[in-house]
Computed example of a mutant assay.
Amino acid sequence: MRQQSGDASLLRKLNSAAILRVLREAEAATLSELARAARVSRPTAEVIVDDLLAGGWAEECVEDEAGDRQRGRPAKRFRFRASVGHVAGVGIGRSGVRAMVADLNGGLVTTRRRLLPVDTPAPERVDAVAELVATVAEEAGQAVPELLTVGVGTTGVVDGEGRVVKSVVLPDWTGVRLQEELQARIPVPVVVENDMRLAVLAEHWRGAAQGRSDVVYFFAADRIGIGLLIGGRPHRGAHAASGEIGRQPNQNWIAFRHVMDYAMSVEPGELRSSRQSAEFAIARARAGDERAAKAVREFARGLAGGLITVVNPLDPELVVVGGSLSSAGDLLVEPIQEVLDEYCLYPPRVVASGLGNECITLGAVRYALDHAERLLFTLPR
């Protein structure tokens, strides 16, 4: 039966997507290797690669000719050109907004942060996100419409439509249709997810959880949060609220009282938040203050007590301590590890995150890349 033009067009798209996907996954490949991996003829692969070269999606590798003269002329090799497209990632937190732009291999091009008061009205916060995306895109040499996807991580319970169902951190944030509002301001696809799920995604991509399938990410800063990686994928839960700790009595876990009591006893006239008290005690402990070291140790053991209720039923391989307090390193990690070793049937290893305050934004970049890759490299059906 004679093939119709529509059939030929679909076949061409199938073959192009297959070869582009092979190029994306390979460091470099010859035409023969591409044809074999994509299951097309070599002439078909050659035509498609010529199109990809013309469109900027591929480039020819420059060989070291001096090393190949004795073997004759080597076959041409091609690779995916990551700079042909870019994505942006945004992290929305209590103190402001951070945004990054990366190429299609995840190479970071630029990053910028904007501080915002915690009581910033929701419409102004959304505007600030869109403005910051425009700023980082421009710094990366891109117009916003040229971005392939914008990934956004935000505090709060986020449903499948990118709506903030509930937020206990940002006032006026509950009920915001964040994906819809941003989509009205940003002329490219926008995908929105909970910040803790993106944090554990970032750890799995570029952090301490690389190569691990079951991980608990424990966020310790102005608030406590948890991100769960189960079977290599961030876990959402039945109501997209997986990992949400929610509001705690006195706005903190009872563990913070150890460092808050210590800070108050040393400087009774100084009012500090729970995070500030922890940072104060950690700094004094590093300077050799034994009382501070004891307070930090009890603080860490208190955090571990809460973690046990998550670790025992989930049986993770790893616990990653993130957030601003992760900079305490072994002052927190060692006491937490001791408690888990004592009370867990299979104690996971506990490590401090090395991604710092950029963890959530990096996760948003990875989330945007995943969306862009589905658009670019998935075969049409």
Rank of each mutant, 00 (worst) to 15 (best):
R77E: 00
D64H: 08
G55Q: 08
A99T: 04
R71P: 00
T44M: 10
D50S: 12
R21N: 15
A54V: 05
L52I: 12
G141S: 09
R21D: 15
G141P: 10
R81S: 10
L116H: 05
V136T: 05
W57F: 15
V152D: 05
R98E: 14
R69P: 01
T110N: 04
R112Q: 12
S32L: 01
A75D: 10
V49S: 08
A38D: 02
E131N: 12
R77H: 01
L34C: 10
V97L: 01
Q70R: 08
L115T: 11
G89L: 05
R94I: 13
A75R: 09
E59D: 06
T44L: 08
I48G: 05
R24G: 09
G107H: 13
C61G: 02
Q70G: 14
G89D: 13
V118E: 15
V62I: 14
E138G: 12
T120N: 01
V49G: 08
V87L: 05
A122R: 13
L148T: 03
D50C: 04
L20M: 10
A28G: 03
V129P: 07
G141E: 12
Q142D: 09
E124L: 13
R113V: 05
S41D: 05
R113Y: 00
V133P: 00
W57P: 03
A82H: 05
D68F: 14
G91K: 02
V40I: 15
R71A: 14
L104Q: 02
R36F: 01
G106N: 06
A128R: 03
A37W: 04
G89H: 08
T30D: 00
A82C: 08
R112G: 02
V47G: 09
S83A: 14
E60G: 13
S32T: 01
G67R: 12
T154C: 13
T30R: 00
L132C: 07
M100T: 04
T149Y: 12
R71T: 07
S32A: 13
T120I: 08
N105C: 12
E124A: 15
G55W: 09
V150N: 07
R24M: 02
P117R: 14
A37N: 04
A29V: 13
P43W: 06
A88W: 00
L116T: 02
P117D: 15
A134M: 09
G151W: 01
E138D: 09
L104N: 09
D64N: 15
R81A: 11
I48T: 10
A37Q: 09
A29I: 11
R125Q: 02
L34M: 14
